Simulated scan of single mutants.
Amino acid sequence: MKLKDLAHSRTGDKGDIINISVIAYNEKDYPTLEKLVTVEAVKKFLGETVQGEVIRYEVPNLGAMNFVMQKALRGGVTRSLRLDKHGKSLSSILLEMPLEINN
């Protein structure tokens, strides 16, 4: 199963910082997301894309988490040579993260 099977996402940026929200389609799946979509798992999955710290903020009443990632845009919109200077595609990439769910 992939993250996109349980959640959708939105992305925003500010300078060289990107935030990616992960929002459960169904509130009953939020505890599973909370358990599996950890800072360590996200950082490992995105690899060298995120060079700095990753912080997770939990919003359980919305069934959502927000990941704030430092040094993720290679200098920010005005300096980056990346094709996706705002990092909008990173939310789609993150949704491809595999989840191992043990019943």
Rank of each mutant, 00 (worst) to 15 (best):
residue 1 M to R: 14
residue 2 K to A: 01
residue 3 L to M: 01
residue 4 K to C: 10
residue 4 K to W: 11
residue 5 D to A: 10
residue 5 D to P: 00
residue 6 L to W: 03
residue 6 L to S: 00
residue 6 L to D: 03
residue 8 H to Y: 15
residue 8 H to D: 13
residue 9 S to G: 04
residue 10 R to C: 02
residue 11 T to V: 15
residue 14 K to G: 03
residue 14 K to S: 12
residue 15 G to Q: 03
residue 15 G to F: 03
residue 20 I to S: 05
residue 21 S to A: 14
residue 22 V to S: 00
residue 22 V to F: 04
residue 22 V to Q: 00
residue 23 I to N: 02
residue 23 I to V: 15
residue 23 I to G: 01
residue 23 I to C: 13
residue 24 A to S: 15
residue 24 A to F: 11
residue 25 Y to F: 15
residue 28 K to Y: 03
residue 28 K to L: 08
residue 28 K to S: 14
residue 29 D to I: 03
residue 29 D to Q: 13
residue 31 P to V: 14
residue 31 P to S: 07
residue 33 L to H: 08
residue 33 L to V: 06
residue 33 L to G: 00
residue 34 E to S: 12
residue 34 E to W: 10
residue 34 E to A: 12
residue 34 E to Y: 12
residue 35 K to T: 11
residue 37 V to G: 05
residue 37 V to S: 04
residue 37 V to H: 02
residue 38 T to N: 11
residue 38 T to Y: 10
residue 38 T to I: 12
residue 42 V to K: 05
residue 43 K to L: 08
residue 43 K to H: 14
residue 43 K to E: 09
residue 43 K to N: 12
residue 45 F to A: 02
residue 45 F to E: 07
residue 45 F to K: 02
residue 45 F to R: 07
residue 45 F to N: 04
residue 45 F to C: 09
residue 47 G to S: 11
residue 48 E to L: 10
residue 48 E to N: 14
residue 49 T to D: 07
residue 49 T to S: 05
residue 49 T to I: 13
residue 49 T to Y: 08
residue 49 T to A: 02
residue 50 V to A: 08
residue 51 Q to M: 05
residue 51 Q to P: 02
residue 51 Q to H: 08
residue 52 G to T: 06
residue 53 E to I: 06
residue 53 E to R: 14
residue 54 V to Y: 11
residue 54 V to Q: 05
residue 54 V to P: 07
residue 54 V to R: 00
residue 55 I to E: 13
residue 55 I to M: 11
residue 56 R to H: 03
residue 57 Y to V: 13
residue 57 Y to C: 11
residue 58 E to Q: 08
residue 58 E to Y: 08
residue 58 E to T: 11
residue 59 V to H: 14
residue 59 V to T: 09
residue 60 P to S: 09
residue 61 N to D: 15
residue 61 N to R: 03
residue 61 N to Y: 13
residue 62 L to R: 04
residue 62 L to Y: 15
residue 62 L to A: 12
residue 63 G to S: 07
residue 64 A to Q: 11
residue 67 F to T: 09
residue 69 M to H: 08
residue 69 M to D: 08
residue 70 Q to L: 04
residue 70 Q to Y: 13
residue 71 K to S: 13
residue 72 A to K: 04
residue 73 L to A: 04
residue 73 L to C: 02
residue 74 R to H: 12
residue 74 R to V: 04
residue 75 G to H: 14
residue 76 G to E: 09
residue 77 V to L: 14
residue 78 T to M: 09
residue 81 L to A: 09
residue 81 L to H: 05
residue 82 R to D: 15
residue 83 L to Q: 08
residue 86 H to Q: 14
residue 87 G to F: 02
residue 87 G to R: 01
residue 87 G to H: 04
residue 88 K to S: 07
residue 89 S to M: 09
residue 89 S to D: 08
residue 90 L to P: 01
residue 90 L to R: 01
residue 91 S to H: 15
residue 91 S to W: 06
residue 91 S to Y: 07
residue 93 I to G: 02
residue 93 I to Q: 05
residue 93 I to P: 01
residue 94 L to Y: 14
residue 95 L to T: 10
residue 96 E to W: 01
residue 97 M to C: 06
residue 97 M to Q: 08
residue 99 L to Y: 09
residue 100 E to A: 07
residue 101 I to A: 03
residue 102 N to P: 00
residue 102 N to A: 06
residue 103 N to F: 13
